[in-house]
Amino acid sequence: MRLEPITNPSVLRQSMPPILAILGAFAVAALLALIAGGDPLAVFGLIIKGAMGSKFALLETLNRATPLIFTGLAVAVAFRAKLWNIGAEAQFYAGAAVTAALGTGVIAAPSAILLPTLAIGAALAGAVLLLIPAILKTRLKVDEVVTTLLFNFIFLLFISYLLEGPLKDPMGMGWPKSARLTPDARLPRIVDGLRLHWGFALALICAAALWVIDRKTTLGFEMRAVGQNVEAARFAGIPVNTVVLKTAILSGGLAAMGGFSEVAGLKGSLTLDLSPGFGYTGIVVAMLALLNPLGVVFAALFVAAIFVGADSMSRAIGVPTYLADIMLASALLMMVLAILFSKYRIRSG
């Protein structure tokens, strides 16, 4: 048995992987729901209802999708240029930390000035955080998978130090959390009375902007060239190292904007459990989206819906929420497999 490349896959074949992955994930989940003593159809029904069955549920899903769009975009833009950024988690926290540090009254300015300042400050922090591994990669050929991954742990400890030290809320009764953001530093709701903040709109704008960069600008062309064939890109005179560094700035900045959005839009303060692994889930989101910036939005919505829906389902019938994690994990595995089979076919002999 051997794999044979398909030279010109049809559009149908190319769009198969995400669909197969989602179907596969549901199949695995159905099996596990049975084992856990639930009726699979009822479980799925409750997940869907919990994710979008009511206005409240839908808004909850959109809120949950917001940080995932940012981290998903961060991973997608980096992976497209073959910069393996596993550190979106740390960059996310970097953005959150800057927001918490500067948004608690340090800078006194009206919202119209303060919010862009916070966003840009957060993005810069994330960019710097990814620039370090990127420079190590371009200068010393240090593997960025290792450095970005390890940065996650180092940076989370650093956040822990900040929350016990300089950023600790004096009124927090000893809890490791930052002070609350001033009202001027909060992202307002898109529609009064609905619990959905402007962070979601910002995420959509970032996705659209990234799509435009990818298709319409020289940077997008250069990033794709470097990602697909670095040797040919270098030969053609594309400044490969500069492109990698620019990619790092974009990617780190996007992940950090997620942290800004989460603190300024949703939580209002920084805690150590701000992210339940948004940076890592961003990898799943980016892969499900086949690294397409617009696809990231849909993949993030799907992933968020599963999490939100599983929470609600679990409260209703007692099948554990771990089902959501397993669904995501199996969706990712199926995706990798399905991508393989969208490019190759099996030949016997």
């Binding site: 020289t218 040919a232 890109a233």
Partner: peptide, 24 residues
């Protein structure tokens, strides 16, 4: 490996060396 990028189309390969000066 060096002269072209396999999954780029002919247009993208045609401008690989000149995109910055002539097509942007």
């Amino acid at each position: 490996k060096t002269g072209s990028i396999a999954d780029f189309d002919l247009t993208e390969n045609a401008i690989l060396e000149t995109y910055a000066q002539k097509f942007a």
